Amino acid sequence: MIVDRQGRRFRNLRVSLTAACNYACTYCVPNGKRLVAAQDELPAEALARGVAYLVEAAGIDQLRITGGEPLISPRLEAFLAAVATLGLKDTSLTTNGQLLARKLPLLQAAGIRRLNVSLDTLDPNAFRRIARGGDLACVLEGMAQASAAGMRIKVNMVPMRGQNFDQVLPLLDYCLERGYELRFIELMRMGHLARDANAFRQQFVGLEQLLTRIGLAHGYVQAAAPQDATALRYHIPGKGYFGVIANESVPFCRTCSRLRLSSTGWLHGCLSSSNRHYIGELLDKPRHQALPALQRLLVKALADKQEQAFAGDVMVMKVIGG
């Protein structure tokens, strides 16, 4: 097991199946152009082999499949089949939900039981303005079908001043009524927002402001969460739970257990670091040769983590798996 001086280790792996996305959300890309697949994205079998090696080399026991948008990837079915054999404690998937109804049978057959759905508003006009793609009704229908099929759903919302802050309470009530757990994610200084401090400040909504708005309609108490959780979790008695990923207001770097693997074979130990470590060339090597080299890269990736707080980076979030 690889552990740093703060006692952190990698337990959670997020694999970006593709950099391509059928949305062009304002907080992700500045120019409205949809992200496309990289020319050198690895085959599903190679990515799955990377996961298997990381399970053994780092002790990974939780996997989240991300993008871009994973449901548009032609690698999805083969990757799901391969990682289903690894005996992971938990495998989940993050999606914008646009193709969720269509892909639901595949996800069920692969044993996916948890979904994170990115949804920033219930207002169709605001949805089109923020996502710059997709159809809100399709997303809501996909979530309803997944819930009816027994999947646990968390909804990810990025509240932003001037764009969707008025949707905080409507979306929270919508989720509470349906048994979804809403996670508010503070705007992150990633990509173009790392370069434009003024745009970031104008849109940023912090934990205190968010809880004040929620407190106008609901009483809540803070709930317990795992030691390495990224979200502060709150309980509204008799109604349900919500969470806040307060990366700016209450940094969680000291307990972070996340590792990211891009679709092109690069390991990222920290979102605040431009450092990356290529494992693609190891995936064709036999296990006894690959694992020692991989462990050396993991030591470097763990050293990339911030000691105190998130600092931001110019990388585009969706390229490395959210």
Rank of each mutant, 00 (worst) to 15 (best):
P226H: 01
Q306E: 15
K33F: 15
L100Y: 13
I245H: 04
N198I: 13
E69D: 08
M151E: 06
L187Q: 09
V221R: 08
G191A: 03
D173W: 15
S147L: 14
E181L: 11
L100Q: 09
N125C: 10
G59L: 07
L99I: 03
P226I: 02
C175D: 02
L35I: 04
Q163P: 08
H268G: 06
Q306M: 13
G97K: 04
S273R: 03
V15H: 08
A217K: 12
N247D: 14
L259P: 15
G150L: 12
M151Y: 13
Q289A: 13
R129W: 14
F200S: 10
L35A: 02
L88C: 05
Q62I: 08
R296V: 10
A231V: 07
K89H: 11
L193W: 02
L47F: 04
L47V: 02
M151F: 11
L283T: 06
R102G: 00
V244P: 09
Q289L: 15
L216I: 09
D166L: 09
V3Q: 13
E208W: 03
L136E: 05
A82E: 13
A101K: 14
V221Y: 03
D120N: 04
V168Y: 12
C25G: 00
P30Q: 03
L35Y: 04
E45A: 15
G240H: 11
F310K: 08
F204N: 06
F165G: 03
M315H: 12
I245S: 00
A149Q: 08
E281P: 15
D166E: 12
I185W: 13
Q39I: 07
F252G: 00
G68M: 14
